[in-house]
Write a protein that binds this DNA or RNA. Structure first.
Length: 103
DNA sequence: TTACTGACCTTTT
DNA sequence: AAAAAGGCCAGTA
């Protein structure tokens, strides 16, 4: 079970530190498969409901929130701002500053 | 039960 | 250079 890519992805999502964000591909890559980004999104759907995962710390590769407005976009943005993450004018996060790096 | 889908990314035309 | 296709897995219908 713990060997599955899914479990590893969940694990990585959990260890994203407060005040930082991670991208789908990044998590997938750390988990072992650079191409498993879709799994990450799917896991956020399934797991964040059941477990307490910081789903809001995951954004796409452009540094933007992937959720459409009216579906959680604002909620996610708010949560990130509460953690000290700053948005630029286009609602883009500066990845070079806030992107989390694996130790 | 099979088939399709998803808050995406990488690789190949 | 831009555009299309492939890939990953479990949940949902």
């Amino acid at each position: 079970m713990n060997d599955s890519l899914t479990e590893r992805i969940k694990n990585f999502i959990k260890i994203v530190p407060r005040g930082k964000i991670a991208t789908y591909g990044q998590i997938a890559s750390y988990a072992g498969n650079p191409r498993a980004a879709r799994l990450v999104s799917w896991i956020l759907h399934s797991s964040s409901k059941k477990y307490h995962l910081p789903w809001y710390r995951i954004v796409n590769n452009k540094g933007k929130i992937s959720l459409p407005k009216g579906k959680g976009y604002h909620r996610q943005k708010k949560l990130l701002e509460q953690e000290g993450i700053l948005f630029q004018e286009d609602d883009v996060i500066d990845l070079s500053k806030f992107k989390w790096e694996k130790k």
